[in-house]
């Protein structure tokens, strides 16, 4: 079953008296393990698409399915639970909670799931170790570099073992060297965990790591290209062990 499916999804935003179309009758399917890059100019609808898939916004037309479940049928609380269990988010400006340490920031989504404190701590420490921050777990965000903060955010997205991670310009606030390190990390996590990644980005160097490239223009997907540089999807399809 597809992890994500969009059927005829449209989203309009009122600007003055006129509705502006952010997405227009978009159809899209994302499979498990895909490493998808979403490209497009500013205002092309990338963030809107991520918000809809992330159950943070509702389409004006069409339907979004996560694991075959229509989001329109869910209450606000059910959508929160869906985000908590199935979706991870990585934000452009990291969005860490400044008063919490790296460990506590990663632990927080687990505490929202009412997972016991000790277990949540262990899992958060493991996730931080996975992103190379085992020695920084007790630091607050203001004691970390931009790259380290984004790694904490990645660990936070991963710690709940989601099916899909949505990243909106995750490297926009990082220098090019750090951006490449972050993309390498995400690529290896994709291979290790089999989680589906969907990125909105302007950076072209990301393309070399993508298994699929989607290009948005004026609310339409104008290009949907499958690439061969990562074979994870094929591995999953053929039943090979992943990670």
């Amino acid at each position: 079953m597809a992890v994500v499916k969009l059927k005829g999804v449209s989203r309009y935003f009122p600007v003055g008296n006129k509705p502006i179309t952010a997405l227009d009758k978009v159809d899209l399917t994302l499979e498990r393990g895909e490493f998808v890059v979403l490209r497009g100019a500013s205002g092309s609808g990338k963030s809107t698409l991520l918000n809809l898939i992330g159950a943070m916004d509702d389409p004006n037309e069409g339907e979004v399915f996560i694991h075959g479940k229509a989001l329109s049928s869910l209450s606000d609380k059910q959508k929160s639970q869906l985000r908590s269990h199935y979706i991870g988010f990585i934000f452009q400006s990291f969005n860490l909670i400044p008063v919490l340490t790296a460990l506590e920031n990663v632990q927080y989504p687990l505490s929202l799931q009412r997972i016991a404190n000790n277990e949540a701590k262990d899992r958060a420490a493991q996730a931080l170790a996975q992103v190379g921050l085992a020695d920084f777990i007790h630091r607050r965000p203001n004691q970390l570099s931009g790259g380290q903060m984004q790694r904490v955010a990645i660990a936070r997205a991963l710690v709940t073992k989601p099916d899909i991670i949505l990243a909106d310009e995750p490297t926009a606030n990082l220098d090019s060297e750090t951006s490449k390190q972050i993309m390498d990390l995400l690529g290896s996590l994709n291979r290790e965990t089999g989680v589906t990644f969907l990125f909105a980005t302007h950076h072209d160097f990301v393309l070399s790591r993508a298994s699929r490239i989607l290009e948005l223009k004026d609310g339409h997907i104008v290009k949907d290209e499958q690439l061969q540089n990562l074979n994870l999807v094929d591995q999953i399809a053929s039943g090979e062990k992943v990670g």
Binding site: G54, M56, D76, K77, S80, Q81, R83, S84, H85, G88, F89, F91, S93, N95, I97, Y108, P109, L112, Q113, R156, A157, T160
Partner: peptide, 16 residues
Amino acid sequence: TQEIGTIRAIGGTRGE
């Protein structure tokens, strides 16, 4: 505000 948005995005309910 942004922190509230983040908590909601990562699965926090309104009640939370």
